[in-house]
Amino acid sequence: MSTFYIQINSIKYYEKKSYNYLEAQLLVFSKDFQTYKDIFVNINSYHYGCGAVCIQSINDIINSINIYIDYDNSLELLDEKLFENRFQLPKLDKAKLLNDIDNLEFKYYSNSSYRFKKDNIFWKEIEISNLPNNSYITNLYMLTLRKSIILDSSHLSNNILLLTYDREDIYSRHCGKQEIEEDLRKSDEIRGILKHGVYNSIDLIKEKNERMKKKVELTIESE
């Protein structure tokens, strides 16, 4: 039986005295149907979290995988371990989304660049770390801050947000990069921008798709 990007090769359902469980073998295709991978499903009433397992329980898995593939996500990165013992991928907790922003860590620096026979360039930098391990959300942080008028530039590298502001051309001695005291008001302002922008623009389907991927070292770089 075929269901869009998924071919169901087998389904077995077992009932025991104290629990029941379901096993299935799925053949999942990429969006262009050029590649495929086997997914083995094994869910039971101990782990499923919503009472007894029935044949219809497989629908959650099929619908989620179909949406994942339809959004052009990598079949290779689909985490088959999600389906080995259970499939329980809750909706995003927006309270946690805001808490993650509160837990961001800030470091401040002054920096400058020497220019021959011209005023030197001076600016301030912020490095924001402790970002969520979710590339969709960290990119959303980036897109939100790019729209902010309080920053001169921003980019994301090796799971750290790098921001600059207060750029000036000054006839003064070039000093290079030096760590300075955190500007708490500026940090709170950035957190507020992120909370408003991310909370109101997040795509819950894309965020869920990201959680369905295998966890890899985050080395995204954007400018």
Rank of each mutant, 00 (worst) to 15 (best):
S2P: 05
F4E: 05
Y5I: 00
I8E: 13
I11E: 08
I11D: 10
K12Y: 03
K12C: 02
K17P: 06
S18C: 08
Y19L: 11
Y21R: 05
L22K: 09
L22Q: 07
A24E: 12
A24D: 10
L27N: 12
F29E: 05
T35N: 15
K37T: 14
N44S: 12
Y48W: 09
I58M: 12
D60L: 12
I61Y: 15
I62T: 13
I62S: 13
I65F: 11
N66F: 08
I67Y: 12
Y68S: 00
I69Y: 15
I69V: 10
N73P: 03
S74R: 00
L75N: 04
L75K: 00
L77W: 07
D79P: 00
E80N: 02
K81M: 15
L82M: 04
F87N: 00
F87Y: 09
K94Q: 03
A95F: 12
L98R: 06
D100C: 14
D100A: 15
L104Y: 15
E105Q: 02
K107F: 10
S110T: 07
S110H: 08
S112Q: 11
R115T: 04
K117T: 03
D119H: 08
K124N: 13
I126W: 15
E127C: 05
Y136F: 14
Y136Q: 08
Y141N: 07
L143A: 13
R146V: 10
I149L: 14
I150W: 00
L151C: 07
D152A: 02
L162S: 01
L163Q: 01
Y165F: 12
R173A: 10
R173C: 06
H174V: 02
K177W: 07
K177P: 05
Q178F: 14
Q178V: 10
E182W: 02
D183K: 01
S187H: 12
R191W: 09
G192T: 06
L194E: 08
L194A: 08
K195R: 03
N200M: 09
N209P: 08
M212S: 05
V216G: 02
V216T: 06
T219H: 12
I220V: 14
